[in-house]
């Protein structure tokens, strides 16, 4: 499978969950396992562009797929992406454990919806639990990221 643009080939036991494969076999420990029953969303990654729970998918099922994780979000020069930067600016993370899932969910959503409103983002984020922030700063970060992405696009046009 390809993860963040790099190709990996491994033999794995069929029961190996994708989240464990990423973390243990590929040492991509940025994706977190928070509940292993598909509720908390900390393990959210993008597979072929779609967000999903990597604790509810076996690694073998991602054979040949293109996977994106938090490790692949930063810009090529290592600087933070707009969304990451907005999390930083708005204090959108405290302990940081749910953050990979939050970022991946919003990454997918902002790719598809350039002009989200607050309620829409709150609904999208119901798939990701956070115990530290009360979500407010995460929602603000998402809204600000959308604004900045639009501004960047307009500037480029």
């Amino acid at each position: 499978m390809s993860v963040n643009g790099r190709t990996y080939e491994r033999d794995v036991e069929p029961r190996m969950l994708l989240v464990d494969f990423l973390r243990q076999d590929l040492d991509l420990t940025g994706t977190h396992a928070g509940c292993e029953h598909g509720v908390c969303g900390a393990c959210t990654v993008l597979v072929n562009g779609r967000s999903l729970r990597s604790c509810l998918m076996f690694a073998v099922q991602a054979n040949g797929a293109s996977v994106e994780t938090i490790e692949g979000l930063a810009n090529a020069d290592g600087s933070l992406s707009i969304l990451q930067e907005c999390f930083h600016d708005h204090h959108g993370l405290q302990c940081g454990f749910c953050t990979p899932g939050m970022l991946m969910t919003l990454t997918e959503h902002l790719r598809e919806n350039a002009t989200p409103d607050e309620q829409e983002l709150r609904v999208v984020l119901t798939g990701n639990l956070c115990r530290c922030t009360g979500y407010q700063a995460i929602v603000e970060a998402g809204l600000d990221a959308a604004r900045r992405m639009r501004a960047k696009k307009e500037a480029a046009e």
Binding site: T31, E71, P100
Partner: peptide, 8 residues
Amino acid sequence: LLRGKGKF
């Protein structure tokens, strides 16, 4: 933490 480089 934002880059997935935390140490949990």
